[in-house]
Nucleic acid binder design. Structure first.
Lengths: 254, 254
DNA sequence: CGTGACCTTGAAAGCCTTCAACTCGGGTGG
DNA sequence: CCACCCGAGTTGAAGGCTTTCAAGGTCACG
């Protein structure tokens, strides 16, 4: 069913990343940018060093599986560049994208022994992988890691609950507006310009994230443009022209 | 906007619950049934005793607010009897129920300083409340608590992701069948008979959980009955007549 | 026995989907 | 260099699933 794990195949090419020589190194992640260690949240530098020590770097080209639902959950990982999609499938192939992951984002945490969803690269992705076994060992020694992981899980849970409201009760227009605003906020979190919103994923991915079809997504983009709420310099860039009105629409106020 | 917190009002009447005299008591929860301490998961008995020490018991009549989205998240709690609904609202009153909580279930964990959703009792509810400040203090002393909380959060996250698939991609029939099967599994987890499924909530709650209207829920119940998949002795009891076929329907296989 | 809450059922309407055709831009090969 | 092809996106028209609006039924309660 699942032919192979790309994490164990040539698709993931580990790149050089020296672990710090000593746990006391003031700048433990000099060889690795800060995004690689988001997993640790607010843990101190010594723990960051330990994390950097068990981490391996990988690069994945666009449109490639990263892990699949039901596979043994061997590792958790942080994306450091590119975009990934997390999704679940129904028996007949219908797909629901649970979320997108960008530079600095975390994925792969699962309760059971297997992944609860699949992950694929959308564009070319760079990520840092933390083997589960070694992470578990680290958690046993450094209980503060559990608090960092709990924070990550709570963030993810909050986002999922917001998406439940979107999928259960919002109209197509409200869904797309909510999505654009959340992408804009995500760009700001990554210290990128909040406008224009850059769509790193195609219409099919947007549709499967919003519980719509590509045609409805396309029509709704057109209708938002006609209403003067957005501009579309090209299919992958959205200028937010009326953030206030869009916020109202996203919260179901008009 | 939010008139008052029922947790600070007469709606929640603390009842007697003696904390164990010593942290070494072999049966720390003798005065409190096991369901009150689900928060601790697999932590050892000493920690269970500490938890029991900061816990207060409350009773709430049906249809009463427990906490509301945006309020300060003062406590987390375990339901020990009855049913509660967790939900979010849109600006115009549309409601999405995020989940139901039954005896033994946990709720109120939130990342920020405020609750991310509202909670109400559906039927009369008994719950055990753990004040956040005291729980934080306990977490600082007993890091294993964070692992228990992480497990709870991961369970909740997994359920939310399953519900995303339901709301985004399943038909009305698939949604209702999925719901009935999950209620059945929940009954089995609570050591109750898996059949008949007992609907402790009304059609409006089911509709707002499944992203449908009460009319569609009612019609879909009727259609499942006509197909011979379920029997409806009365509006609140469902006999599962063909679990296998229903499992297939729920996974989108027919 | 009236009242109201809840559930069910019917008919019409609507939002989104499905099916289909068309456009646009990039890559390829003649 | 340009015709051709292919993937991705857009747009149109018809259809369907669910919603909306409306009415009727059942049961508990006063």
């Amino acid at each position: 069913m699942v032919p192979h794990s790309p994490l164990n195949s040539a698709a993931l090419r580990p790149t050089t990343c020296e672990a710090p020589a000593s746990a006391r190194t003031p700048a433990p992640c000099a060889a690795c940018d800060a995004r690689a260690l988001n997993i640790c949240g607010q843990v101190d530098e010594a723990v960051q060093c330990l994390l950097a020590g068990i981490m391996t770097r990988h690069e994945i080209e666009g449109g490639t599986p990263i892990f699949e639902e039901g596979q043994p959950a061997d590792s958790v990982m942080n994306i450091t560049a590119g975009t990934a999609r997390l999704y679940k499938l129904l028996g007949d192939g219908r797909r629901q994208i649970l979320g997108f992951r960008f530079a600095g984002d975390f994925m792969g945490l699962s309760h059971g022994a297997t992944y609860a969803y699949s992950a694929e690269s959308v564009s070319a992705v760079q990520l840092c992988r933390f083997p589960r076994r070694r992470l578990e060992a680290l958690r046993a020694q450094q209980p503060q890691l559990d608090r960092g992981l709990l924070d990550l899980a709570m963030d993810e849970l909050g986002a999922a609950q917001e998406q439940l409201l979107l999928l259960g009760r919002k109209t197509a227009e409200e869904r797309l507006v909510s999505f654009l605003l959340s992408l804009s906020r995500a760009q700001r979190r990554r210290r990128e310009p909040a406008d224009p919103v850059v769509l790193t994923m195609g219409r099919a991915d947007i549709a499967d994230y919003l519980g719509l079809t590509i045609e409805t997504v396309s029509r709704t983009f057109g209708s938002l443009r006609k209403k003067g709420l957005i501009a579309l310099p090209d299919a992958l860039h959205v200028r937010v022209l009326s953030a206030d009105r869009m916020e109202d629409i996203a919260s179901g106020l008009e």
